[in-house]
Design a binder for these strands. Structure first.
Lengths: 335, 335
DNA sequence: CTGAAAGCGCTTACAG
DNA sequence: CTGAAAGCGCTTACAG
């Protein structure tokens, strides 16, 4: 059985396809009678207009792209859920695009999304090179940034105040008496990570605790454990480590367990994100919480607004992070 | 600047759009010269064919739907990643659809995906009612089942052997000397959960340990902790609990911590799935591992095959689960 | 080897 | 209040 088209409905209703189109879109002036009659017929036939046909005619595709480093990373999975839900609320569906923070993948997805005529894309992935977004920008596809900064690109964005988050982590640790601080950061290309480190460092310095460059390590999630091991085995072992995301912190936790370093007694660890992971680790992670749901929702809303009126000057919303204290931090042991 | 269309390319190349279309699709007999010349021009103009236009012309949309209960659940997030990657390999993009296991949402997504003309959909969500898939089936959209059984529907499927998984959990616990077993299951409507319980129960009974009905509790993830508390506070407290997924197990772990029940000394806990969560809990979770990546990959492959030749009789592949022993299980304490 | 033409399923002015 | 017609950007026979 072929799917019914607008022609079938029109024929069954004894009207033109234009009229049917009008009732589908609730436009034009059509008598209530006719309108209801046609709706009835559509129901009976199980007719649903093809979105791809209507998209071709200049309307929107109601599809969005969501670029994230990795959908299987709980942080982004939670973001995705928020984006999906808010998207549904506005009539949009979302394509997942995991980029592994690789420019080539970003580029491939950018082209793909453009070919698919998506109405917009949320960029939650790192970008070394702005030019990877060219396909999107050229095609006039609205873009909004989620938890990323892009210098010199005028687009809406939601971020959490990463600087403040890093700062809050430092304050917490300093308050607990720690003097010998280390940082496990993401790759340098990730601006959010840089900001977190910057905030952490500034606050540490204000307290008279300049960071030892050897104790500020950039790493990937895979290598986090190894880098943390280095830290634990270094001569002047730090008594506290600030990790720029929970996954990194988990790597540190694992390294500690392997080396028999007791957390938090011998070393405090602070994460960042507060995904589901943070509450289930051993010990549960003290971490800087991002308002994940709000991030996703806001990104979607900004994008939709942008789709609605492309002219608008891009909005930038900054959400506050918050410190969630669990069991991975404690007073520095008196030596 | 408007996006270039096939007409622009044709004009620039001084040929008809038919010819351009032919070179796009690598079809027809066109002289190498012309072909390369036209390709050149397409490159220069940054021309990329619109997938929605080509989809309208009867070709595929190269879009797929992935129905899962919740993309923010790490198990499904990991599945999604595998599906996405394998999809890319075959040229497909995927829409995320979180259903919360609610029929209404499944139905809404089924309709939506049909309207979007997706080439196929992977169903990894629970379905109380088969009729929710009607929109898809009627529209002749291929469907494949991932980790779900659907009686009386003839479609390809990948599952892990849930029965065997439940059985393996029971064996492990019995081997450790446990006699007083409890089960935390998902809602009854989830067939995979039912199978796991069935396998667990059968193996327990074979060992002469029939399950106390009061100790086999169906619950949601939200209520897992509360249900586990009941278990821990019941008169004849179980010494081991089999949880039908890791999230449920985490609920049990949390309940135990709250009540001061030491795991695994006072009670062993076995999970199911082996997502990233299992390795970070306190204590790390002994769990029945699903081959998650393989599940996602296989589902995608089966779907693509189905899209290729709709006639084929549906394949059913069964993947083996495996026991991953961590620290949440131990010998029963001698009383 | 290549072009003219019809058609995919819609929407949108434009008439009436 | 409703219909005829053009057009969205492609693909696919069909000619030549």
């Amino acid at each position: 059985m072929m799917k019914a088209t607008i022609y079938d409905v029109a024929k069954a209703a004894g009207v033109s396809i234009a009229t049917v189109s009008l009732v589908i879109n609730g436009k034009g002036k059509i008598s209530e009678e006719r309108r209801n009659e046609i709706k009835q017929i559509m129901m009976q036939m199980g007719y649903k207009p093809s979105m791809i046909a209507s998209a071709l005619t200049g309307k929107k595709t109601y599809a969005l792209g969501l670029l994230v480093p990795d959908i299987s990373n709980p942080f982004f999975a939670e973001i995705a859920r928020a984006v999906e839900d808010e998207g549904q609320r506005h009539g949009y569906s979302v394509f997942i695009c995991s980029t592994d923070n690789k420019d080539e993948k970003v580029e491939r997805y950018a082209e793909l999304l453009q070919q698919k005529n998506v109405d917009g894309v949320i960029i939650g992935t790192g970008l070394k090179d702005l030019s990877v977004l060219d396909p999107l920008l050229k095609a006039n596809i609205p873009v909004t940034l989620l938890a990323r900064e892009l210098p010199s690109v005028e687009v809406p964005s939601v971020v959490v105040d990463d600087y403040k988050g890093g700062s809050a982590a430092a304050e917490h640790l300093i308050m607990l008496g720690h003097r010998n601080l280390a940082v496990l950061a993401e790759q340098d290309s990730i601006s959010s990570s840089r900001e977190r480190v910057r905030g952490f460092r500034a606050t540490a310095e204000q307290a008279g605790l300049p960071l030892d460059p050897a104790f500020v390590l950039s790493t990937s999630i895979k290598e986090a454990k190894a880098k943390a091991s280095e830290l634990f085995q270094s001569g002047n072992r730090p008594t506290a480590i600030f990790c720029c995301n929970d996954l990194l912190a988990i790597g540190a936790l694992q390294a500690a367990k392997e080396l028999g370093v007791r957390i938090p007694e011998e070393c405090s660890i602070v994460g960042f994100d507060d995904t589901v992971l943070a509450s289930v680790t051993d010990p549960p992670l003290t971490t800087i919480a991002q308002p994940i749901e709000q991030l996703g929702q806001t990104a979607l809303q900004l994008l939709v607004r942008q789709i609605g009126k492309p002219g608008e000057s891009p909005e930038r919303v900054v959400l506050p992070p918050s410190l969630t204290i669990r069991k991975s931090t404690a007073m520095r042991a008196s030596i």
